[in-house]
Structure formats: C-alpha cells, structure tokens
Computed example of a mutant assay.
Amino acid sequence: MAGVYLAAILTSHVGIALLDARWKLAVWARPRPALVAIAALTVLFVAIDVLAITMGLYGLGESPALLGWNLAPHFPVEELFFIVFLSHLSLVGFGAMMTVVNRS
C-alpha cells in the first residue's frame, strides 16, 4: 500500500499535463514563463509549509499510503510532488479560464 498516494499524485499530474499539451494552456503554450511560475509557486508553498510546521500548526500524519520518506521532519516527499502538481494545475486552470473568456 505504500506509495499509493504518490502514484495518485503522479497519475493526476500526467492527466493535467496531457490536457495542457492538448489545449496548450500553460507549459505547452509558453514553456519558460510557465516553468518559472511553477518553480516560484513551489518555492512559495514549500516556504509556507515549513513555516506552518515550524509553528506547530500541523505535522506528519500516519498513513500506510505514504512512502515514509521525509525531506524534513513532518515534510514527506509526497508533499513536494503535490505542491508541484498544484502549481501546474493552477496554471492550467487559469489558462483554461482565459481561453473561455477570450472566446466569448
């Protein structure tokens, strides 16, 4: 059961990447700015997570779906993959919204 959460994140990210490629919504439309935005959002969200962990606002939960690999205390490797996915998803969602608005 270990690794199921990471597999779900990666599968979802592949789906979003395929939508992005098909409709050219973010990375496939303008790769350099999109990748810079994803990197910047990833850094921001990791900083927020580290701050929240440091303040004791949340910690690592117990789940058999996690791999058990931590990048830092209370910061599982899955969290980093989720943050990258969330950043890409946000750009794809924004690109889709702008496509719809511009066609109206």
Rank of each mutant, 00 (worst) to 15 (best):
D49L: 06
V77W: 12
V84P: 09
V77M: 13
L60Y: 02
V84G: 09
S90A: 15
V43T: 11
M98T: 15
P31G: 09
A21E: 10
A40K: 07
A34R: 01
A34C: 02
L41W: 08
A37F: 11
A72V: 05
L71R: 05
R32C: 08
P33N: 06
A96L: 15
A39R: 06
V84A: 12
M97W: 14
S63D: 12
L91Q: 06
A47G: 15
H74T: 04
W28I: 05
L44H: 05
P76S: 10
E62F: 12
H88V: 04
F94G: 10
V43F: 11
A37G: 13
A52P: 02
V46N: 02
L71D: 06
A34I: 00
S87W: 06
V4L: 14
P33L: 05
V43Q: 09
W28M: 10
L71T: 05
K24L: 10
L19D: 07
E78G: 02
G56D: 00
H13Q: 11
P76I: 06
G56L: 01
S12L: 13
M97T: 12
P76W: 04
S90Q: 09
L60G: 00
V101F: 14
V77H: 08
I9R: 02
V92C: 11
V46R: 00
P76M: 08
M55I: 07
M98L: 14
L19G: 15
T42A: 11
S104P: 05
G68N: 10
V50T: 10
P31R: 14
I9F: 03
R103V: 08
F85P: 00
R30D: 13
N70S: 11
P76F: 05
F81I: 07
V4F: 10
L41C: 08
A40T: 09
G59K: 00
L41H: 03
V50D: 04
V46Q: 01
R30G: 05
G56W: 00
